[in-house]
Design a protein around this nucleic acid. Structure first.
Lengths: 159, 159
DNA sequence: ATTGGTAATGAAAACCATTTTCAATAAGGA
DNA sequence: TCCTTATTGAAAATGGTTTTCATTACCAAT
């Protein structure tokens, strides 16, 4: 069940927040763009449509969207925080990434089978119970070396 | 197969690095302490034994240990990077955490059954093949609300 | 529509974890 | 023991993020 802009607008209003132009523009950029944008990248993209926007506003809007569970925050260790709109409805929100240690590229991998989802659900249930911890969402990160970087290392060794 | 201090010392020397007193003290703190220390926490602990140490040296030593695959770096989004000694030998190094969105507490959960490990291995094999990505290690993070914070929210609502 | 209270905004300054600079120090091979 | 060079620590720089504060503009009530 994908969420349209109206959904977000209603949700923001429901939070007692005002639906301003900068916020709408930021939401548009988030919903259109590919994933994992940094605050500066978002600011830059919004700039092309709404040049008056300040970086500060981007940060503040993102913070609001996060506290309203509309945006998720990622820190992959490359010195800047990244943000992604949560587009899927439902209790199970999950994110899986391959992260290259060499070039820091991030590959999204969404394809999880029913079996795999079932497995994760069972683990979550188990951990929730054991630690009395209410699990809202999860991420799995696989760190390693991507195809391109592996190739470059090999090429270098051949010289 | 746990690794003693000698293992690390030999390894550092093997990297062409000098085995200095600050580095030994930092390794001691890392190997003794509970997990996920920040650079400042490490510096503080080393201080009690070796007061002359500078924060800079802590950062530099950690960087060296990371590039030598002796330490792992985590960023849980609380504004400071955290570090952990890799104590286990072997190809499969994995870390699983419950992270409280409210108080930012991090709970380690190491107990994974053989079934669960097998499942993860199969996923890794699949992803490695599909993306031609060499997976070295992985982390799974479960975000939510811990027992204490859940209780506090409930108590607050009762007022 | 107009108004008024207040949330939101943007520029600049502050913040703060981490990195860099550089002169002084010390590890460890010769 | 000497000498080369990696390492160290203090201070300064860096750079992403947050705070401050005066101005602007939502939007509920009129």
């Amino acid at each position: 069940m994908p969420r349209g802009p109206h959904w977000f607008h209603r949700r923001i209003r429901g939070y007692g927040c005002r639906l301003t132009l900068p916020r709408q523009r930021i939401l548009e950029v988030l919903s259109r763009s590919s994933k994992h944008l940094s605050a500066e990248e978002i600011s830059h993209r919004v700039h092309q449509v709404y040049p008056a926007i300040g970086l500060t506003t981007v940060y503040r809007t993102l913070e609001m969207l996060i506290s309203g569970a509309m945006v998720m925050k990622f820190d992959f260790g490359d010195g800047r925080t990244r943000y992604e709109l949560i587009k899927d409805q439902g209790a199970l929100i999950s994110h899986h990434h391959l992260i290259c240690r060499v070039c820091l590229k991030i590959i999204d991998c969404a394809e999880f089978t029913g079996y795999e989802r079932g497995y994760l659900e069972s683990i979550k249930k188990k951990l929730s119970k054991k630690y009395k911890f209410e699990i809202r969402e999860h991420q799995t990160r696989f760190y390693g070396v991507c195809e391109k970087c592996k190739k470059e290392v090999t090429d270098y060794a051949k010289r």
